[in-house]
Computed example of a mutant assay.
Amino acid sequence: MKKMINSVESLLEESLNGFATAHRDIVRLNHQPNFVTRADSSKAKVKLISGGGSGHEPLHTGLVGMGMLDAACPGQIFTSPGPDQMLVAAQAVDAGKGILFIVKNYAGDVMNFEIAAEMLDIPTETILVADDVSLPADHSTGRRGVAGTLIVEKIVGAAAEAGANLQACKQLGERVAQSTASMGVALSSCTVPAIGKPTFDIGSNEIEMGVGIHGERGREPMDLVSASEIVEKLASHIDAELKPAAGQRVLLHVNGFGATPLMELYLVFDLAAQYWQEKGVIIERSLVGNFTTSLDMAGCSITLTLLDDEMIQYWDAPVHTAALRWGC
């Protein structure tokens, strides 16, 4: 294992310190418990809070700021944050309009956010994101929440910024989540510093189709094939789930897992765009880059969201975070 770290134990704290210093115009960092808030958190609006294990940067801390999250709670690498983090973060940003938790569908995240909501004397609602179609819809723990989480956070964040109430934000977020599907492929595993070795073995001429973002194996190992064949397999699963009709406007998001060059991600985007354009689907909006990563994993995911006028309006709305900035 080769990592630019001082120690496994200090990695998260030191990383958070660096993040907060680099983006001190946007965020504030609280220690013990760890959470990040917007620097300008006084606006009377519904407050959005998300979080999860670290190792997925810039998700979620990098999405705190105007037009997106009001707070993010980072756990240790691939480990859910504790209820105390959500509880204190919610109390810190509450402005009397309610708290909306945006939660990826992993057992630890779901349980701890539920505990925090029960402990709060503040109106709360939760949006559960479960966009990973590599798992069947009837999977015992449900589908995982992956890169589609960012899409929910951006669109609902803009609605909250515009003054939408708690129920309106929740309903919009659920509509976005239900209109979004993702699937990923890994060319390599990732190495969790505390473990010191790759989380799974993969041959030099193999790929893992349908991986999660926590170093889990995929739904099936495959021989390495061309990018066109990989994209066809990913896109066909997503298409079968969402069934976009000809003329449907969509957002196409190609997300890197941390170790794949942008040159390859844009190639994947081009192939995916061609796949749906040949079906008459309109690529109305796009996003390419490393946003929901898995430490040093090589690979990517494709996310498709079926758009309507309201979603497009809020996607285009100004945003100013460490990872997403436009319209400001």
Results as ranks from 00 to 15, higher is better:
197 K>T: 06
197 K>M: 10
198 P>A: 10
198 P>Y: 03
199 T>F: 01
199 T>A: 05
200 F>D: 05
200 F>M: 03
200 F>K: 03
200 F>N: 01
200 F>H: 01
201 D>T: 13
201 D>Q: 13
201 D>A: 15
202 I>E: 08
202 I>Q: 08
203 G>P: 08
203 G>I: 09
204 S>K: 14
204 S>I: 05
204 S>T: 09
204 S>N: 14
205 N>G: 10
205 N>I: 09
206 E>Y: 08
206 E>N: 01
206 E>V: 03
207 I>H: 04
209 M>W: 12
209 M>A: 07
210 G>I: 02
210 G>Y: 06
211 V>N: 01
212 G>E: 06
212 G>L: 12
212 G>V: 11
214 H>Q: 05
214 H>L: 06
215 G>H: 00
215 G>W: 02
216 E>P: 01
217 R>C: 09
218 G>Q: 00
218 G>F: 01
219 R>W: 07
219 R>M: 14
220 E>W: 03
220 E>H: 06
220 E>C: 02
221 P>R: 15
221 P>A: 10
221 P>H: 03
222 M>Q: 13
222 M>W: 13
222 M>H: 11
223 D>A: 13
223 D>C: 00
224 L>F: 05
224 L>N: 04
225 V>K: 13
225 V>E: 12
226 S>Y: 00
226 S>V: 09
226 S>N: 00
227 A>R: 06
228 S>V: 13
229 E>R: 11
229 E>W: 00
229 E>A: 12
229 E>Q: 11
229 E>C: 08
230 I>Q: 14
231 V>H: 03
231 V>S: 02
232 E>F: 10
233 K>A: 13
233 K>Q: 14
234 L>G: 01
234 L>T: 10
235 A>E: 11
235 A>W: 09
235 A>M: 15
236 S>R: 11
237 H>Y: 10
237 H>S: 15
240 A>N: 12
240 A>Y: 08
240 A>K: 15
240 A>S: 14
241 E>Y: 13
241 E>M: 11
241 E>P: 01
241 E>C: 12
242 L>C: 09
242 L>G: 09
243 K>G: 03
243 K>E: 14
243 K>R: 13
243 K>W: 04
244 P>W: 04
244 P>V: 02
245 A>L: 10
245 A>K: 15
246 A>I: 04
248 Q>P: 03
249 R>Y: 07
249 R>T: 11
249 R>C: 14
249 R>H: 15
250 V>W: 07
251 L>T: 09
252 L>R: 00
253 H>E: 11
254 V>F: 07
255 N>Q: 08
255 N>S: 04
